[in-house]
Write a protein that binds this DNA or RNA. Structure first.
Lengths: 216, 216
DNA sequence: GTCTATATACGGATAGAC
DNA sequence: GTCTATCCGTATATAGAC
């Protein structure tokens, strides 16, 4: 049904706002990321896209189908780039943490709503959705995890469940974005000041994590 | 309008399910915590409370008003118990971290949906709501924060913005509950196994955090 | 106080003109 | 492809009997 449309997506990087389908997707991404599925009205998306409500259904058939597309793209775009870091064969364990913190935080600085979006939607979604993007399962099979286990065996790190390390790493990087309204208020910071802290954390987190791995 | 009802709340700990108003609030708390405001239908609450839909409006006037009550109570109950730890005059900085991690994690084990509930609702709420429960502002004025600054001044800790420490502490404790579906899948764990990790973290987080504070 | 029945509003989706 | 007008299900809220 949609395969009949002309495929001019190849050179879309040239134009400003491409075709209508892209306009709707861009608007949907923005609104969904900000408010989540349940709190989003298709009318808001249409308005943000500068088109009529009917067009949304013409292109995507339903709110749910449009959402599924946005969710899948968001999830994969997010996971993919992080897994790449963990799978890199030639970098050291410590270097992977540095690159991860830097890339992960930078990604979230560019798209501050994404972490909350992913986590809040995952809360109510069935496990099947998580498995659907099989990427997730593989994390403890990456070179990163192997290097961690090796480091423990060598006595360079204290014995610890790898998932704990992942929780610490992701917690330290992602939590400040998820809890931004709360933490910003706690520190009485402006948007700029808060963002500055995020930049600092790129360098600090690897240092902290490293120290923790050697603790006791 | 509601002040006319008899006040038998004093000895409510004795009964199983108290009066209707409490039954509705308990049901509302459960459903709101699980699904958030937008995804919750008043019918679900009524059903969970075992009463008719009309009664909900009779007691609380509107979905929004009922939600506001639940939100405020949840927020305060959560913040209060944590602030108490931070304000304690006689415990050391290190001891405060131990108590905080233990209490905070235990609280979330009992109410796993609460962290996600608070954060996801705060994302869309205006800042005024956060300020309304003024508790939040005070965190960097607690004895905990003072002791941290003093420790830095004495050279026991590396210089660091106190808010960073708060982000690390809360990130390490709360993130595993917020990102539970994702992390559980990553580790291929059962509910029990995951819970076991949470218990371990009570002891581990203070150790890690302490090491991080001395790093470099 | 608690129910059944119903009004009212809102949001997703479609019909049909252009 | 894009619009206006409208339908229709669902959810909140109220009326009114008991």
């Amino acid at each position: 049904m949609k395969g009949s449309k002309t495929r001019q997506a190849a050179n879309k990087s040239r134009e400003e706002e491409v075709n209508t389908e892209e306009k709707i997707k861009n608007a949907a991404r923005e609104v969904f990321h900000k408010n989540g599925f349940a709190a989003t009205r298709t009318r808001d998306i249409a308005a943000a896209a500068g088109i009529n409500l009917a067009l949304l259904n013409y292109y995507f058939r339903s709110k749910q189908k449009l959402f599924d597309i946005i969710m899948l793209e968001t999830l994969q775009g997010f996971a993919r780039s992080l897994l790449d870091v963990f799978n890199e064969e030639t970098t050291s364990f410590e270097k992977k943490i540095e690159i991860f913190a830097d890339r992960h935080i930078e990604m979230m600085r560019q798209h501050p709503g994404v972490p909350m979006f992913i986590l809040s939607e995952l809360r109510s979604s069935p496990e099947s959705l998580i498995q659907k993007m099989g990427v997730v399962d593989l994390i403890l099979k990456t070179e990163f995890a192997r290097q961690l286990r090796q480091g423990i065996k060598d006595g360079r790190f204290a014995p610890v469940e790898p998932l704990h390390v992942l929780m610490n790493l992701m917690g330290m990087t992602a939590f400040p974005f998820v809890a931004r309204p709360l933490l910003k208020q706690m520190g009485r910071l402006s948007d700029n000041q808060y963002d500055q802290l995020m930049v600092e954390r790129k360098k600090l987190i690897p240092r902290w994590l490293n120290a923790a791995l050697k603790a006791k």
